[in-house]
Amino acid sequence: MFGFLLVSLICIVALIVAVAPHVLVPYGPTQETGPIYSPPSWAHPFGTDGLSFDVYSNVMLALPLDLGLGIGIAAASLVVGGVLGLLAGFYDRPGTLAGYASVSIMRVTDIFLSFPSLILALAITRVLGISIINVAIAITITWWPYYVRLIRGEVLSVKHLPYVTAARAAGVTENRILLRHVLRNVTEPLIVYFTLDIGTVLVTYSTIAYIGVASKYPGPVPEWGSMMAYYQSSAPISSYPWLVLAPGAAVFVTVIAFSLLGDGLRDILDPRTRRAFVRSTTPEPPAERALLPVTPLETSAGDPMAEGPLGTPDPGGGG
């Protein structure tokens, strides 16, 4: 699984850079190395810029921050949006207090979703003041409604399944149904979406930084978006393409890695593909217990067309 390997690699590198930068990063963020605008070479893999700073070092030093921001913002949105979405989706009986709360959550969510999130984040940053943390907060504020919407939809589809009703008929309390049956069955799409979302958050953050509302570059804490913005304005891109390409490529690789991981997770977690690994029992048991052994062929509506290429085909009849 390529995406998984790539993401692991990126995370390990980020960890090393954060803990012991000198292992992978030869120069400090604002350390002058001598030559200016030197093209990529063994000494300077991504060349140097007009102040003779090593671009490779800056790109690497930005990795923990950018990765952390991507994961952190997505995770914060996941927690906030996830909890609200679960509650809004599960306790939505009209006429009750919880029902009104559910409606309110959804209205607030709709209001947030009706703004372009980038513009909203910029506006919030303006209000809070320019700093990396404030940008992160601003993005989180615009981000959680997407999770509310996603989780609520999943919860609505799961909560009407017969096994939820069966649990209710057994006397299980509502809170326990939510945790035991509903939450467990909505985690899969959630994990996939979260993984894919990390890349999107990263791009959004870089965009805000590129506009110049986040952090200053060059500075003690480099960041890919602001690097691109600085290099694009400080030197002609046609003469020194590596300056812009290096941080750009870093964003690109990171986002692609998480996309691949998300797609891979989707395949692994999808029950339709998982069914292919179904165990089957041999030898055939005697008559009365005979229904047990698995016939992977059994689904209710036998339509291989509907299953798509990922599904286990049902070579059998319908009905």
Binding site: L161, P162, Y163, T165, A166, H181, R184, N185, P271, S300
Partner: peptide
């Protein structure tokens, strides 16, 4: 219930 698939929590 009728639905032998949906009436059991797959997890």
């Amino acid at each position: 219930f009728q639905d032998p698939v949906g009436s059991l929590d797959p997890r």
